Every structure is written in structure tokens, then in C-alpha cells.
Simulated assay, not measured.
Amino acid sequence: MIRIKARAPTARGAVLPTVWGAVAVGYKFGCPLAQQNGLGARIVTSAVFFAVGTGLIFHVRRSLLRELRQARRVAGAAQSVLLRPPPPRLDGLNVAAAQLSADRGAAIGGDLYEAVATEHGVRVVMGDVRGHGLAALGTAAALLGSFREAAHDETELARVLRRLERAHARHLRERCRADHPASGQEPGPPVAEEFVTVLLLEIARDGEVRALNCGHPWPYLLSGARVEPLSRADPLPPLGPFPLPAELEARPCGRLLPGESLVLFTDGAEDARDARGRFFSLPTVLREVVGTHPVTPQTVLRTVFAALLHHTSGTPTDDVAVLVLRNDRGRSRLSCLGARDSDTCGSAARAGPSSTDPQPTTRP
């Protein structure tokens, strides 16, 4: 548990209020003008006490702002440990991520993401806890901690999801027990309002992508000039309201070819509205991005967040997280390089070799 301890008022901080108070008392009882009842004397007395009150207000305001800046620095350091930025490269993948909190003063909110390189491939999690701001940090911390361990330990992606489900349920029970310590009873099942959407991806060395989706938006695939969802399959229910099915199996989602990118995001991106109630069109912005050269994860992030802030007039109502991965593995050895129709070539490669093709093409 992270505790932020407020510093006790020091003698130095009490000097100015003491001086201002002494001036006011000295004027009231030591100055002959303060004893008079004339209009001029009353005006002077009012001016003196107004100056004293103004000075005390500014002093208190300055002290509060100083303490607030200190608390934000401590909270920012703790939050950076929780939602640490991913490394720029992971096993040949170019990675970039950023998060925008709807709460002023909070570096992160209810969104979570992580990408780690394991012996099973690069594994990625993107999640969205119900609610936003500091209240959702506990759930995000529980899930991220579980993922960082399970991603390396578990050979199957389905077992990673099982670990996340158990971590989420355990966190809700502990929080319920902490909220009602005097009940002396074991907490009941979590309420339906406490849920989190989770997307798990596994990108193998050959680019094969496998996914498990619990109520989260599917990422977009950037391939050449095309922007399309990675999958259109119905996701599983979010973690929390209902238990996961007894049989879990990661869904194959084709291959992420060299030069292609995946854009993972939380629903705050597509649910953002402008002043007229129009939703933010993430695919439209991504199509504008792929029209520029070269398309890097950093370029995608800058363009998406700039367009999102412009759409919402700088005041998004929900947390937004975006994570971009581009396959930079062996781009120089891509067999389709130099073909006239690169889009057609990429589609054929993702579909895999045909049953009638006697010499299937191998890729890194």
C-alpha cells in the first residue's frame, strides 16, 4: 500500500501568519486612530484588516499549492511504476503506448496495458476497469501484477486469462472485506457493476497472432493503406459479472506481417463525443495516418491523441489508452517487397500458402 504522509506545519510556515496577526492586534489596541469613530478612521481600519486578511489568504493558498504539487509528484512516481511505459522494442516489434486520464491531476485512471517478451512470444494485455481516476487504480494494479507474472509462467494464453480472473475476484473480495471490517463474515460474490474488459494478445516469432477477448474492442490492423479490425468475432463477457467458460482456447487471428501494425485501444477512444454529440471516428484518423510515410507507432499516437483532444475540445469524459505495435522483423527479407500490388501480396501472405501451391513461401 502506498501512503502519502502530509508534513506537519513547521515553525517557518507559522512565521508569516503570526506577523500578520501581530500587526492587526497591535494596530487595534496600540494605534490611536483605531480608537476613533470617525469615517476616516473607520476607512483606515478597514483597509488594515483587509490587507491582513488578504495576506493570510495568499499565504494559505501558497501553502496548499505547494502541498498539492508535492502530493502529485509522489502520486506520479507511484503511478509510473504501476503503468510503466513499454520498451520501444520488444523482440523485433516497435512498441509505443500512451494514456490520457479524464481526471485532472491523475496520470492514469482505469485503463491498463502492458507488453512483455517471453519465451512463448510477445504477450500484450489491454484492459479497461469500470470507472476512472484514482478509484480504479487498485483493480488495475491487481491485474497488471498478475499478468506480469503469468505471462512468463504460463505456456498457454488461456491460463494467463484464468490467472487474471482469479486476481480480479481476489481483489474484489479483499476490497469488500476492507470496506466492511466489522461484519465478521466472508464477503459475498462481487456485484455486477464491478467488471473489467480485457484483451490478451500473443504474437509468435513467425508473426502468428492469437487472442482472447473479454468484452474489449478488437484492435485495428494497419496493413498498407487498409485499416480493418483484427477480428469480428463476438468477445467473451468481461471479467467480474460472470465466470469464464470452462473451455478456453485462444483465437487465431492470422499473421502480423513485417511492416504491419496493430492499434490497441480502450473504448474511451471511440466513445468520445464532441459538443454536438458526434462520436470520435478512430478508423478515419487511422486512415489518415497510413497515408503518411513512414508510419511509426509514435506517429500513430501523436495523430490519434491530437485528433481526440481536438474532437473533445481538450476535455475527454473517459480515460483513453492506446498501444501500437509494428512488426519490424526482417522487413528487408520480405518476399513481397517490390511487387506491384503490395496490398494483394500482403493479403495472400496473411492467408497462408494454398493447398495447390507446391512451394509455399516461408517468412521470418
Rank of each mutant, 00 (worst) to 15 (best):
P245C: 09
A269I: 04
E260S: 14
L262A: 09
G254Y: 03
E202T: 01
P238T: 04
G224D: 11
C214L: 12
L248M: 10
P190Y: 12
P229M: 11
G184T: 12
C253D: 05
L199Y: 04
G240F: 01
P237D: 00
L201E: 03
P258D: 09
G207S: 01
G224H: 08
L222Q: 06
S223H: 07
A204V: 04
T266H: 01
V227G: 04
P219S: 12
R226H: 15
P237C: 08
P187W: 02
N213E: 06
P217K: 02
A192K: 15
S231Y: 13
V196Q: 11
E208C: 10
L244E: 05
G259L: 03
E260W: 08
G184F: 11
E247C: 13
H216I: 13
F242P: 04
R205W: 00
G207D: 11
D206A: 00
D267Q: 10
F195M: 11
F265C: 02
E247G: 12
V196K: 01
S231F: 09
T266M: 14
A250T: 08
L257H: 07
P187E: 07
P217T: 10
F242H: 10
E249V: 11
L236H: 04
L244D: 00
L236R: 06
L239S: 02
F265K: 03
V209F: 11
A211I: 05
E247W: 08
A192R: 03
L248K: 06
G215P: 07
E270R: 13
N213S: 00
R226W: 13
P252W: 00
S231R: 12
A225G: 13
R255A: 15
P219H: 12
P252F: 00
F242V: 15
A269R: 01
L244H: 08
D206N: 09
P258I: 15
V196W: 02
A225Y: 12
W218P: 08
E270K: 11
L221E: 02
E186I: 12
L257E: 07
G184I: 08
G268I: 07
E186P: 09
D206C: 08
E247L: 15
R226V: 15
P217F: 03
L257C: 07
G224Y: 05
H216Q: 14
R251E: 14
L239D: 00
L200M: 00
W218I: 12
G254R: 04
A250E: 05
A233P: 12
G215Y: 07
A246F: 13
E249D: 04
L222S: 00
L222C: 05
A269C: 04
H180I: 10
A192G: 15
E228L: 14
R251F: 05
E270I: 14
A204H: 01
E228D: 13
L201W: 02
E202M: 03
G259P: 03
V209I: 15
G224L: 08
W218K: 14
L244C: 11
P238H: 00
P217H: 11
P217G: 09
A225Q: 14
